[in-house]
Protein backbone atom coordinates (compact mmCIF):
# COMPACT_ATOMS: atom_id res chain seq x y z
CA UNK A 1 0.00 0.00 0.00
CA UNK A 2 1.30 3.41 -0.86
CA UNK A 3 2.39 5.33 2.15
CA UNK A 4 0.63 8.55 2.82
CA UNK A 5 2.22 11.61 4.31
CA UNK A 6 0.84 12.13 7.76
CA UNK A 7 0.24 15.83 7.37
CA UNK A 8 -2.22 15.17 4.56
CA UNK A 9 -4.54 13.44 6.99
CA UNK A 10 -5.34 14.01 10.62
CA UNK A 11 -5.26 10.83 12.71
CA UNK A 12 -8.81 9.51 13.07
CA UNK A 13 -9.85 8.42 16.56
CA UNK A 14 -13.02 6.44 17.24
CA UNK A 15 -14.96 6.78 20.47
CA UNK A 16 -18.18 4.89 21.13
CA UNK A 17 -21.07 6.46 23.03
CA UNK A 18 -23.31 3.67 24.26
CA UNK A 19 -26.11 3.35 26.76
CA UNK A 20 -29.80 2.81 27.00
CA UNK A 21 -32.51 4.30 24.86
CA UNK A 22 -33.20 7.89 25.81
CA UNK A 23 -30.05 8.26 27.91
CA UNK A 24 -28.90 11.21 25.81
CA UNK A 25 -26.32 9.64 23.51
CA UNK A 26 -27.15 11.72 20.46
CA UNK A 27 -27.29 14.83 22.63
CA UNK A 28 -23.82 14.00 23.91
CA UNK A 29 -22.49 13.46 20.39
CA UNK A 30 -24.06 16.75 19.29
CA UNK A 31 -22.55 18.67 22.21
CA UNK A 32 -19.01 17.95 21.15
CA UNK A 33 -19.42 17.64 17.39
CA UNK A 34 -18.49 20.45 15.02
CA UNK A 35 -21.15 19.23 12.57
CA UNK A 36 -24.79 18.40 13.22
CA UNK A 37 -24.80 14.67 14.05
CA UNK A 38 -25.13 12.45 11.01
CA UNK A 39 -26.92 9.15 10.81
CA UNK A 40 -25.78 6.13 8.95
CA UNK A 41 -26.48 2.46 9.03
CA UNK A 42 -24.77 -0.79 8.35
CA UNK A 43 -26.01 -4.13 7.17
CA UNK A 44 -24.67 -6.78 9.48
CA UNK A 45 -24.51 -10.37 8.43
CA UNK A 46 -24.73 -12.88 11.20
CA UNK A 47 -24.17 -16.54 10.67
CA UNK A 48 -26.94 -18.72 11.94
CA UNK A 49 -26.08 -22.26 12.74
CA UNK A 50 -27.74 -25.54 11.87
CA UNK A 51 -28.80 -24.44 8.43
CA UNK A 52 -27.24 -26.05 5.38
CA UNK A 53 -24.95 -23.72 3.57
CA UNK A 54 -26.26 -24.35 0.06
CA UNK A 55 -25.08 -21.38 -1.89
CA UNK A 56 -22.99 -19.37 0.50
CA UNK A 57 -25.76 -17.05 1.49
CA UNK A 58 -28.30 -19.29 3.16
CA UNK A 59 -27.73 -19.79 6.81
CA UNK A 60 -27.04 -16.13 7.29
CA UNK A 61 -29.29 -13.44 8.54
CA UNK A 62 -28.82 -9.79 7.80
CA UNK A 63 -29.91 -7.03 10.05
CA UNK A 64 -29.55 -3.30 9.83
CA UNK A 65 -28.17 -1.19 12.63
CA UNK A 66 -28.22 2.57 12.62
CA UNK A 67 -25.90 4.92 14.40
CA UNK A 68 -25.48 8.61 14.91
CA UNK A 69 -22.10 10.15 14.82
CA UNK A 70 -20.33 13.44 15.06
CA UNK A 71 -16.88 14.75 14.33
CA UNK A 72 -14.54 17.00 16.25
CA UNK A 73 -11.29 18.14 14.70
CA UNK A 74 -8.41 18.99 17.01
CA UNK A 75 -6.16 20.93 14.65
CA UNK A 76 -3.48 21.56 17.24
CA UNK A 77 -2.81 17.80 17.50
CA UNK A 78 -3.75 16.94 13.90
CA UNK A 79 -6.52 14.66 15.15
CA UNK A 80 -10.10 14.10 14.26
CA UNK A 81 -12.39 12.50 16.83
CA UNK A 82 -15.34 10.50 15.64
CA UNK A 83 -18.00 9.88 18.24
CA UNK A 84 -20.31 7.05 17.32
CA UNK A 85 -23.58 6.82 19.21
CA UNK A 86 -25.01 3.33 19.22
CA UNK A 87 -28.75 2.92 18.80
CA UNK A 88 -31.17 2.65 21.71
CA UNK A 89 -31.98 -0.79 22.96
CA UNK A 90 -30.91 -2.42 19.76
CA UNK A 91 -28.22 -4.89 20.68
CA UNK A 92 -27.20 -5.80 17.20
CA UNK A 93 -24.44 -3.23 17.28
CA UNK A 94 -22.61 -5.66 19.55
CA UNK A 95 -21.98 -7.66 16.41
CA UNK A 96 -20.55 -4.70 14.59
CA UNK A 97 -16.90 -5.43 15.15
CA UNK A 98 -15.80 -2.60 12.95
CA UNK A 99 -17.30 -0.14 15.38
CA UNK A 100 -15.28 -1.53 18.26
CA UNK A 101 -11.99 -2.51 16.63
CA UNK A 102 -9.48 0.28 16.78
CA UNK A 103 -11.73 2.36 19.04
CA UNK A 104 -10.02 4.33 21.79
CA UNK A 105 -12.78 3.41 24.20
CA UNK A 106 -16.40 3.95 25.10
CA UNK A 107 -18.61 6.09 27.24
CA UNK A 108 -21.63 4.31 28.68
CA UNK A 109 -24.18 7.01 29.24
CA UNK A 110 -26.62 6.08 31.98
CA UNK A 111 -29.88 7.47 33.21
CA UNK A 112 -30.53 6.73 36.89
CA UNK A 113 -34.24 6.31 36.13
CA UNK A 114 -33.41 3.43 33.79
CA UNK A 115 -30.10 2.07 34.95
CA UNK A 116 -30.95 -1.42 33.77
CA UNK A 117 -30.73 -0.15 30.19
CA UNK A 118 -27.00 0.28 30.65
CA UNK A 119 -26.26 -3.26 31.79
CA UNK A 120 -25.77 -4.68 28.32
CA UNK A 121 -23.26 -2.05 27.30
CA UNK A 122 -21.29 -2.29 30.55
CA UNK A 123 -21.13 -6.04 30.23
CA UNK A 124 -20.12 -5.87 26.59
CA UNK A 125 -17.18 -3.49 27.04
CA UNK A 126 -16.04 -5.24 30.20
CA UNK A 127 -16.04 -8.52 28.34
CA UNK A 128 -14.26 -7.21 25.28
CA UNK A 129 -11.63 -5.40 27.30
CA UNK A 130 -12.34 -2.04 25.73
CA UNK A 131 -11.60 0.88 28.08
CA UNK A 132 -14.82 2.56 29.14
CA UNK A 133 -16.22 4.99 31.65
CA UNK A 134 -19.78 5.32 32.88
CA UNK A 135 -21.28 8.79 32.80
CA UNK A 136 -24.54 9.48 34.60
CA UNK A 137 -26.50 12.00 32.61
CA UNK A 138 -28.05 14.30 35.20
CA UNK A 139 -31.61 14.71 34.08
CA UNK A 140 -33.36 17.50 35.89
CA UNK A 141 -36.15 15.33 37.26
CA UNK A 142 -34.02 12.36 38.23
CA UNK A 143 -33.25 11.56 41.82
CA UNK A 144 -29.57 12.10 42.63
CA UNK A 145 -28.30 8.78 43.83
CA UNK A 146 -24.87 8.64 45.43
CA UNK A 147 -22.19 7.30 43.13
CA UNK A 148 -21.64 4.26 45.31
CA UNK A 149 -25.28 3.22 44.90
CA UNK A 150 -25.06 3.57 41.15
CA UNK A 151 -21.82 1.64 41.07
CA UNK A 152 -23.37 -1.14 43.11
CA UNK A 153 -26.52 -1.21 40.98
CA UNK A 154 -24.46 -1.50 37.82
CA UNK A 155 -22.06 -3.98 39.42
CA UNK A 156 -19.36 -1.73 38.14
CA UNK A 157 -15.81 -2.79 39.02
CA UNK A 158 -13.80 -0.29 41.05
CA UNK A 159 -11.36 0.36 38.25
CA UNK A 160 -14.04 1.72 35.92
CA UNK A 161 -14.46 5.48 36.38
CA UNK A 162 -17.95 6.71 37.19
CA UNK A 163 -18.78 10.35 36.53
CA UNK A 164 -21.69 12.72 36.52
CA UNK A 165 -22.32 14.79 33.44
CA UNK A 166 -24.72 16.96 31.55
CA UNK A 167 -24.88 15.62 28.02
CA UNK A 168 -26.05 19.00 26.73
CA UNK A 169 -23.03 20.83 28.03
CA UNK A 170 -19.85 20.79 25.99
CA UNK A 171 -17.38 21.34 28.89
CA UNK A 172 -19.11 18.58 30.84
CA UNK A 173 -18.92 16.18 27.89
CA UNK A 174 -15.30 17.13 27.33
CA UNK A 175 -14.54 16.20 30.96
CA UNK A 176 -16.09 12.78 30.39
CA UNK A 177 -13.95 12.23 27.31
CA UNK A 178 -10.84 13.35 29.19
CA UNK A 179 -11.65 10.83 31.93
CA UNK A 180 -11.99 8.13 29.30
CA UNK A 181 -8.64 8.89 27.68
CA UNK A 182 -6.93 9.07 31.08
CA UNK A 183 -8.42 5.72 31.95
CA UNK A 184 -7.27 4.23 28.65
CA UNK A 185 -3.74 5.52 29.29
CA UNK A 186 -3.66 4.32 32.90
CA UNK A 187 -4.60 0.82 31.84
CA UNK A 188 -1.37 0.66 29.92
CA UNK A 189 0.80 1.41 32.91
CA UNK A 190 1.56 -1.97 34.50
CA UNK A 191 0.59 -2.02 38.15
CA UNK A 192 -0.10 1.68 38.13
CA UNK A 193 -2.21 3.16 40.86
CA UNK A 194 -2.47 6.58 39.31
CA UNK A 195 -5.65 8.30 40.18
CA UNK A 196 -4.55 11.78 39.48
CA UNK A 197 -3.76 12.35 35.86
CA UNK A 198 -6.47 14.95 35.92
CA UNK A 199 -4.32 17.80 37.19
CA UNK A 200 -4.59 20.90 35.12
CA UNK A 201 -1.74 21.69 32.79
CA UNK A 202 1.13 23.39 34.49
Amino acid sequence: MASVTSDLYPDPVKIIIAGGFGAGKTTMVGSISEIPPLTTEEIITTASEDVDDLAGVEGKTTTTVALDFGRRTIHEQNLVLYLFGTPGQDRFWFMWDDLRLGALGAVVLADTRRLEHSFAAVEFFEHRGLPFVVAINQFDDAYRYPGSAVRAALQLPDHVPLLLCDARDRPSVTRVLIALVEHAIQRRIPGAAHHDLTGSTT
Binding site: D11, P12, V13, K14, I74, E76, Q77, N78, L79, L81, L101, G102, A103, L104, T174, L177, I178, V181, E182, A184, I185, R188, S200, T201
Partner: peptide
Protein backbone atom coordinates in the same frame (compact mmCIF):
# COMPACT_ATOMS: atom_id res chain seq x y z
CA UNK B 1 -7.11 3.51 13.44
CA UNK B 2 -4.90 0.66 14.53
CA UNK B 3 -6.20 -2.19 16.61
CA UNK B 4 -3.90 -1.22 19.43
CA UNK B 5 -3.72 2.51 19.64
CA UNK B 6 -0.31 3.95 20.31
CA UNK B 7 0.03 5.43 23.77
CA UNK B 8 1.49 8.50 22.12
CA UNK B 9 -1.73 8.95 20.16
CA UNK B 10 -3.77 8.70 23.37
CA UNK B 11 -1.58 11.38 24.93
CA UNK B 12 -2.17 13.66 21.97
CA UNK B 13 -5.93 13.13 22.34
CA UNK B 14 -5.66 13.97 26.03
CA UNK B 15 -3.73 17.18 25.41
CA UNK B 16 -6.10 18.14 22.62
CA UNK B 17 -9.20 17.61 24.77
CA UNK B 18 -7.72 19.51 27.70
Amino acid sequence: PSDSLETQLLERVLIGLR
